[in-house]
Computed example of a mutant assay.
Amino acid sequence: MQIQDLLKQTDKLPNVPDIVRELIQLLSDPNAKYSDISERVSHDQTISLKVLRVVNSAYFGLSRKISSIDEATVLLGTDRLKTLVIASGFSNSVMKVEGLKLTDFWADSFRVAELAQWFAKRTPLVEADEAFTVGIVHNIGRLLLHLTAPSIAQEIQTLVANRKAGRVKAEQDLLGFTSQDAGRALMDLWKFPAGLGYAVQHHKRPFSNGEPDPLSCALNLACYLNACIRTERDSDLIREGFPYAVAKAAGLPEGIVYELDDALIINDGLNQLLH
């Protein structure tokens, strides 16, 4: 099988709103002006309503009700608004997927995004909004696989669940490529900035392609912490197993391991976008 065999099934691909694609492409332009973001967001009613619901939730704790995207932009700032729009746009891109529980899938992606952003804010080598975006889409290749080749996706799931193979090996054996490779190909099709696709493709093994990419490393660390949260791993074991070489390559300070408790309690407020 080739990745193109998946991408050719255009009727099954995730449907990401134009405003989300525009925002992600703007991330790679340091001179981009965000003055028209609220106007563009306002034109997508579904995203606007979801964003306003989250803005008015206890997650933000604002003192009064916000009724427009313009107000939300002023109070939250454009960066926070971008993260909400991107999260909302992706989580609404598919309504039903065979073999995946979408609420769990996106909740997991949101947490990885928040963790990747947390690490990015502590290193000069990674942009925080880029880290958030790659966190949201880090598993998009797996979603693509379930949408376009559900029987193979289920076979891979079974192998992994029965501990017959790790996910990367199972995908290589059954597909000839990994879901990370497929994720990058989908992002290239969507014309997202190349650096984001590269990070998605290489985050599982950031040292496998020569000089490690800091964004890939930040995403790798976010996935590590997310797995620790999911399995309720003890804090001492988290520090003991922490990938220090990956943290160094991401440009993080040596003492970052002593700040991890702050990351482990990151709020799941974005999950309100799923309802």
Rank of each mutant, 00 (worst) to 15 (best):
K8E: 10
N15Q: 13
N15T: 14
D18P: 05
D18T: 15
I24V: 12
Q25E: 08
S28M: 06
D29H: 11
D36A: 13
D36G: 03
D44L: 04
D44W: 01
S48F: 07
V51F: 02
R53I: 06
N56I: 02
S57A: 15
A58E: 13
Y59W: 14
L62K: 08
K82P: 01
V85Q: 01
S91A: 09
N92T: 14
V94D: 02
E98R: 13
K101W: 14
K101I: 15
L102F: 11
W106V: 11
D108R: 09
F110Y: 15
V112R: 09
V112Q: 07
A113Q: 09
A116D: 05
A116Q: 06
W118S: 02
A128P: 11
V134Q: 05
I136H: 01
G141F: 02
R142L: 09
L143I: 07
L147N: 01
L147C: 12
A149I: 04
P150F: 10
P150Y: 07
N162Q: 15
K169R: 14
K169G: 00
D173S: 11
L175W: 01
G176L: 06
G176T: 03
T178V: 07
A182P: 04
F192I: 06
A199P: 09
A199T: 00
H202A: 08
P206D: 07
S208M: 04
S216H: 07
C217S: 02
C223Y: 07
Y224T: 00
A227R: 12
I229D: 08
I229L: 12
D234I: 10
S235P: 14
D236L: 09
R239E: 08
R239S: 06
E240D: 13
Y244R: 13
A245Y: 00
A247G: 02
A247L: 02
A250E: 00
G251Q: 03
V257C: 02
L260H: 04
D261R: 13
L264M: 15
I266F: 03
N271C: 12
N271K: 14
N271S: 11
L274D: 08
H275N: 14
